[in-house]
Design a protein around this nucleic acid. Sequence first.
DNA 1: TTACTGACCTTTT
DNA 2: AAAAAGGCCAGTA
Length: 106
Amino acid sequence: MAKSELTQRIIDIIRDIPEGFVATYGHVARLAGNPRAARQVSRILHTCSRKEGLPWHRVINKEGRISLKLMQGYEEQKRLLQSEGIAFDQADRIDLEHFLWQPDFS
DNA sequence: TTACTGACCTTTT
DNA sequence: AAAAAGGCCAGTA
């Protein structure tokens, strides 16, 4: 299956997301070198999270929300994030200003 | 095998 | 300002 370099880099980056922080799809894609590869990030999480042991729960969409449907892992993701100290507001959103992973800044 | 789909985002009308 | 289109590429049918 010849994964592209970009894909490999995306996996690598997701692995580096520290506990207590989250990243958006676009953010990861950007760090990987392709700002428009956000879709691959989601795909990769679906397929590789299991084998690659990726912290799939730390990746969310740009609204600071979980993109999954309510009975597809939404609850599980929310639970995992909360166990890492990430808080949800009234609308079940995460405050990106505070929890977004910024590798260059730390 | 080809074709379509998808945890999305950015850019262009 | 809001809406449509384009892009990325591996997995699934």
